[in-house]
Every structure is written in structure tokens, then in C-alpha cells.
Amino acid sequence: MKKKRNFNLIAGGILAGGMLLFILAGVFFLPQDPETMNLELKFAGMSLSHPFGCDNFGRDIFSRVMVGARTTLIVALGTVGIGAGVGTLIGAFTGYFGGWLDEVMMRIIDALFAFPSILLALVVISLLDKGKYQVILALGIAFIPSFARVVRGQFLKCRELDYVKNARIMGCSSLRIIFVHILPNTLNVLVPTVMIGFNNAVLAEAGMSYLGLGVQPPDASLGRMLSEAQTHLFSQPLYAIFPGLAIILLVLGFSLLADGLEAK
């Protein structure tokens, strides 16, 4: 049992770390310009200068995957930042104080939870317009309920524990109890939740961009590349494989990491 746990953590760490390194490397160095078109290289196969081949405009797929993965990462981080930040605050306060505020907030959260997050994001997009920042905001809002629920559950559990009662007896303020005494104890649940949330954000962003509602050209995004690749699936399957693979590796890495941490 113990061996397997470590395996998850190690494999997840290597995959996620490798993908992050790959994305980071793309910030400083790109083998080719991702926007340069070269019709002579249309659908070129794998070669040393174009390791993943070229797309329908003769652009280097390797460089485009690097840039697209970066965009996806930024959107996912922003999304999780908004969702986890706001969700944690809501969950912490409603869970700790309870009462009618909790009752009302939970009704609203339940109503929002009734929407699958991508649907909620679509509503926001249809109200705001398309674009990278709109997607971050839309998905961020869509992710608040799930974080709020998890954190609230943890706070409900912790607030009944004797160490919290001790803190109240010694006269700690509610804010101090929430942030200094209880919050650190929710991290073991919160961190895996954030990682899973990150994965869902990656998948959701890819889905939205695939539908053309997310990141707009000229920004490259993995979802968008897949949607373009689909039309040329017959002539250049590589174009679809590599962006998809990038998504899978990124998500797989973080889900293994989350599993490993959770089992700890």
C-alpha cells in the first residue's frame, strides 16, 4: 500500500513538473515562431526542425503546443484562483458561523451547483462576450460552488472539535479562529481539491476554446488547435494528437499528485 502511494506522488510529480517545465521553457525559447505560416510545409510530417510536424498553414505544431499549453495553464490558474479564493471565504464563514446566513448561502450555492460548470460558464460568456479574461471569470465563478462546499464541510467538522472550543474559551476572535486555528487544518483536503479543480479548469477551458467561445485567435490554445485539427483529421492526424496529448499529460500529472497527497 505504502509503495503505491509513493508511486502516485512520484509519477504525478514527474509528469506535472515536466509539463510545467515544458511550458516555462516556451516562455524563454521557442524553436520556431508559432505564427509564421509556410505553405510549403503544409502538413509536413515529423522532422528534426519540426518535431511534431506542421499544420494546415505550415505552422510548427511543437511551438504552437508550447504556447497553447501556456495559455491553458494561465486560464486554469486564474480560474482556480478565483474559484478557490472566493469559495474558501464563503465556505469558511458559512461553515463556521452557520445560522440563517449559511442557510441562504447554501440554497444559492445549491442552485448554482445544479448547473454543470461548463453550462454556467456558457451563461457568463453569453453575457460578457468571448475572450481569455472572460473565460477566466466565467469558469472562476462556475467553480466557486464546489470549493465553497468542500471548505464548508471541513469547517462544519472542525468547529465541533475540542481545540476550537479551547480557542473560544481562551477568548480568540472568530476571525483568528477561522484563519489561524481552523484553515491550516483544512489544507490536507483543500490542496487535493485545488488540484482536481485545476484539472477541471484545464478540461473546461479546452472545451470552451474548442467550441470557439474561449481564447480567441491569434492566441494559440490547445482546445482551439484541436478544433482546427479536427477538420484535417484525415490528412494530418498528428495535428490532433499532440495538443490532445499535452492536455492529457498535464491533467494526468495533477490528478496523480492529488491522489498521492490525499492518500498521505
Binding site: L161, D162, Y163, K165, N166, A167, I169, H181, P184, N185, L187
Partner: peptide, 14 residues
Amino acid sequence: GMVFQDPYSSLNPS
């Protein structure tokens, strides 16, 4: 001052 029954939940584990 107060001492509770369960010494396992009376102290903040973190």
C-alpha cells in the same frame, strides 16, 4: 480553564 475528554481532538493538529 477547561480540559476536555478526548486529548486527541483538544489540541490543534497543525
